[in-house]
Simulated assay, not measured.
Amino acid sequence: MPPAPAVPNFRPLRNAAVCLSLSLLAGPLAISATLAAPPARSPQLSGLATLLLGTVRGKPTGMNGVTRLTDGDVDRELRLACQELMRAGPVDLDDTTRFDGCVTRPGKIVEFHLKVSGVDATRDDTREFMASAKPILERGICRNPDVPVLGKLGVRLRYHYVAGQKQLVLLDIPPDQCLRK
């Protein structure tokens, strides 16, 4: 009797996809609290820096710090908050995702930099998974009640997820996107 045909082992692929999906969904879908290790002591952040970090963690802050965006130079206030987050250092969101900070661009644009470990961004299946997960991640970001308020103030949020030196996904949340959802 001939041997049974070999069945490909998809376990590494499945494990990588599960790891990636959990890490990427943790922040925007507000499940990071159940996945993450206890938070490390972090320096006291201003209200606006806390608000921006909350959009990454998927945790509403009650719009703490939003008044800094309604008075004066909004681009300057966003830049100062990102500089504060950069000084505070990287923040582990869960076992595989780290918030490395943010930068601002003119026109009220905030770019968040997130590093994912344990995935191979060069694999076709990883790229396919990320393409399919993008709408879910965007909806998760919009579920944070702070995000539509930022949108009403004209703030555009961009989430850059990278693995190693390769970009996994860019989530671009223009000011009106979460108002439609």
Rank of each mutant, 00 (worst) to 15 (best):
A163T: 07
L153P: 00
P8A: 12
G107C: 12
E138C: 14
L52N: 06
A49H: 03
M86K: 09
L48R: 04
F129W: 14
V110W: 04
F129P: 00
P38R: 14
D71I: 04
E138M: 15
P106G: 14
C178I: 04
R105G: 09
R87G: 01
T55Q: 06
L114I: 10
F112Q: 02
L22H: 08
L29W: 10
R76G: 01
V119K: 11
N144C: 04
T96L: 11
I136A: 13
H113G: 09
R14C: 04
A37R: 15
N144H: 06
A30D: 11
P12M: 08
A131V: 02
E138T: 12
C142F: 13
L69A: 05
L150E: 00
R156P: 00
A37I: 12
L53Y: 00
Q44G: 09
I109R: 13
C178R: 06
V169D: 03
L93P: 02
C19Y: 12
Q177C: 07
R57M: 11
Q83Y: 03
A81L: 02
D120V: 06
N64Y: 12
T55A: 08
V103D: 02
D95F: 14
F112R: 02
C82S: 04
G47Y: 08
Q177Y: 14
R180N: 05
L13R: 05
G58F: 02
G164Q: 12
N15E: 13
V162G: 09
A6C: 10
S42E: 13
M86N: 07
K108G: 05
T122P: 00
A81T: 02
R41P: 01
N64H: 14
P90A: 15
L45K: 01
D75T: 00
V7M: 12
D94E: 09
V116S: 08
L157T: 05
